[in-house]
Simulated scan of single mutants.
Amino acid sequence: MALRTRWQARLIDHGILACGTVFMVLPLYSLFAATTHGAGERLRPRLDLGSAALDNYQALLTTSAGFSGDITVVSMVWNSFLLGAGFAGLKVALSLLTAFALIYFRVRFASLIFSLLLLTLMLPLEARFLATYAVVAELDLVNTRTGLILPLAASGLGTLFFRQFLLTVPDALLESARLDGAGPLKFFKDILLPLSLPTAAALFLVLFVNGWNQYLWPVMVTSDENTYTLVRGMQYLGTSSLRGAMLAIFAVLPPALLVILFQRQVVKGLYDGSH
C-alpha cells in the first residue's frame, strides 16, 4: 500500500511538472511557429509550423536595418552580450569586495552601511533612472558602452549573498593566514576567492540574464544604432512585425539555455551563498 501511495504521489508530481513545462514553453513555441510562415501572412500565435522558416531566419541574419545600416542581428547579439556580461561581472566583483570589506575590516558603521545597501533592494531600478541619466550625460557617457554598463554596477543583492557566505568561512582560516604572514589581499586572493567561486558563478548567471533583458535603460542612454541591443532592436522593429518576433526568439534562447544547462550549479551556488 505504501509503495502504491508513493507511486501515485510521484505520478502527480511529474504531472504537475509536465503541465508547468507546457504552460511555460507553449507561448515560445507558438511564437516560433508563427515566424516560420511567409512574410505576407498575418503574424499570430499558432501551433502549425510553416515552410518559410529557413528563408525568414536567413533573411534576418543577412540583412541590416536602420538609417545607417548598423542594425544587424550579430551586432545586437554582441551588444546584448556585452551588456549582460559587463552588468553581471561588475556587480559580482563589487559585491564580493564590499562583503569582504564589511566583514574582515573594522569599518565604522558597517551595520548601517549594510542596512542602506539592503534598502536598495526595495527601490525599483527604474525609479533612479532619470537621476542616473543626468549623471551619465554630465560625464559625456551617453551612447557609450561604459555609460550603458557602469551605472548599473552596484548590487545590494549580491552583497547580501556574499556576506552570508563569508560569514560561514571558519575563523581558523584567517588565523592560519595571519600565522603564515599573509596580508588581507593575499588572504582574499588565495583563500576567499576560490571558496567564493561557486556562489560568484551562480550569481553571475542570474545577473547576466537580468542584464541581457534590460530594456528601459538601453532605450534611455543609447540612440546610436550601432549600440542597439536585441531588446532595443525589438522596440525599433516592432514586436508585432515578423522580424521583431524573430528577434524575440533570439533574445530568449541564450538566457534560457544557460539556465537549463547550469541550473544545478545555480541552485547550489545560491543556496551555499545564502547559508
Score class of each variant (00 low, 15 high):
T229P: 03
K91R: 12
I260T: 08
V73A: 10
V231C: 00
Y228V: 01
L185W: 11
L253S: 05
A85R: 03
I103Y: 05
F250V: 15
A131S: 15
L152Q: 02
L11F: 14
L125C: 05
L90F: 09
A251V: 13
G156I: 08
E225N: 02
A127I: 02
F161V: 15
A110G: 12
S115N: 03
L141C: 05
F114H: 09
L82G: 01
R163M: 15
F23W: 13
P218D: 11
L54Y: 04
M24R: 04
V92C: 01
R163C: 01
S64Y: 14
S75G: 12
A2V: 14
P170C: 10
G156Y: 04
G86K: 00
L216T: 08
R108W: 04
T35Q: 03
G86S: 03
T62A: 10
I113Q: 10
Q265F: 11
F23D: 01
T222Q: 10
A88F: 09
L157A: 07
F109E: 01
G147Y: 00
T120C: 15
A2E: 14
K268P: 01
V209P: 10
L94C: 13
I71L: 14
E175N: 13
G158Q: 03
F129M: 15
A182N: 04
M24S: 13
L117G: 01
T21G: 13
M122I: 11
G20D: 11
A137K: 14
F204P: 00
T120R: 06
L185Y: 13
G86P: 00
P255N: 08
V22R: 04
A85S: 11
A134V: 14
F129D: 02
A154W: 05
L31E: 01
L102D: 09
D70S: 13
L118Y: 14
P45T: 15
V142G: 03
L121D: 06
L96P: 00
S51H: 10
V221L: 00
F105P: 06
